[in-house]
Design a protein around this nucleic acid. Structure first.
Lengths: 223, 223
DNA sequence: AAAGGTCTAGGACTAAAGGCGTATGGTGGG
DNA sequence: CCCACCATACGCCTTTAGTCCTAGACCTTT
């Protein structure tokens, strides 16, 4: 792990807030705290925590409102959010979970339970990031078509080498004249090839042919 | 909504399993069931459910083992997993949550609670998928652009509504005449809009504009 | 050697695309 | 009320795209 995970604690009771912060800091987490929901939201936006611990009952803005607000912001749509609840509030837990909280802990919080819950959610979030990286790795730079080679057009669309070259440039918006200059042939030749291309692809103009080419180049660029 | 969400129910008690299945099917979900943990795992791998409901106490393989196994597989690292627990098992919930479960429901399950919990987790999963797509630039149905709506062109390219409509059709290879018929206006109008589109996109012909449109529709499709 | 595919390219033509100017209504905001 | 923006539309003009036909040069396969 490169850097310490950052945990935001939103809790109005000072004693409990400090105890939690101390406990988590001793475990190697970076801790930021907020004493109510409104400040908690601001702090979250500023600090970008990896996990949020949040009390339910708070003045100004309760825990439900906090999680609801966060879940509406793309940056926090996936940030693990754990509730801290007193025993009597257990029936209200459902509300929080349905707003998109990830877990809850019953106060008084046992050290091992707290750490286990946090670790579990961090592991979950990392699995999420892993998935993102995998997908991103398969398609670097997005899922954009790769115009670096005409080969995919030749193999996947059954075009001849020259036809594939022509289509490669046409699909990038070049005019027939441009393509003829690029390929060093007559514009008539480009037109001739384009005619063959249209027939092979079953289309009737360069725009449709380009669409086919772009999709082919996007799909068969890297896997 | 494109297709119904698929829910896997892993529950050894036949009556409860059927009741849950019936309830969820009436709500429009596609339901598959399994009568124990081992079969549940196999079913999950085969059916790729969007949500998994799983009993804790089961012969052969209990719910903890199921969630632990699933969380180890990349394909299921992020699939919402909800426990169904009897009242007396509440202390064991922590174990399940720490294995990566997303929520739990206490039996007997109240209909509204069940639906709310499922919807909440589906919403969460979709938010995550959204993030995956944004970061990875990936697309669920492959890498194909979605021509079902001009909205992305309007919002992401700064086009007016009508311009977006025109481009949507042009990008699909339609001629100006075709577009004018489709949109019920003069071909001159189509040309006029296309001129504005070229200027806004910084391109000089319809093929290049289509390229931009296709990439935009591939990136920002679905919502 | 003959056949077939590819790449090249010409002529003659039609169709479509695109630029430029102008103009009319509608609509929303200062 | 006027202005800015939008959608609509026409005319005139130039450029580009695309079709059909023909045909030579160069390959490989038969």
């Amino acid at each position: 792990m490169s850097t310490a995970k950052k945990i935001l604690i939103i809790e109005d009771q000072g004693t409990m807030r400090r105890n939690l912060a101390l406990l988590l800091e001793m475990e190697g987490f970076q801790v930021v705290t907020a004493e109510n929901g409104r400040i908690g939201l601001e702090t979250a936006r500023r600090e970008r925590p990896d996990v949020i611990l949040c009390d339910v009952m708070m003045p100004e803005m309760d825990g439900y409102a906090v999680v609801q607000a966060l879940r509406g912001e793309p940056d926090f749509a996936t940030t693990p959010f754990l509730f801290l609840t007193a025993k009597g509030e257990k029936s209200d837990i459902r509300v929080g979970m349905n707003f998109g909280a990830d877990d809850y802990l019953t106060k008084p919080v046992v050290r091992d339970d707290l750490l286990a819950a946090i670790e579990a959610r961090l592991a979950r979030a990392e699995a999420q990031d892993e998935r993102v990286r995998e997908l991103a790795g398969n398609h670097p730079g997005g899922h954009l078509p790769d115009f670096s080679s005409p080969a995919p057009l030749q193999t996947h669309l059954g075009l001849t080498g020259r036809e594939a070259e022509v289509l490669l440039w046409v699909a990038q918006g070049k005019s027939n004249g441009d393509v003829s200059s690029i390929l060093g042939c007559s514009e008539k030749t480009v037109k001739q090839h384009l005619g063959s291309i249209f027939e092979k692809l079953g289309v009737e103009n360069r725009t449709s042919a380009s669409l086919v080419a772009v999709e082919t180049l996007a799909k068969h660029s890297r896997g």
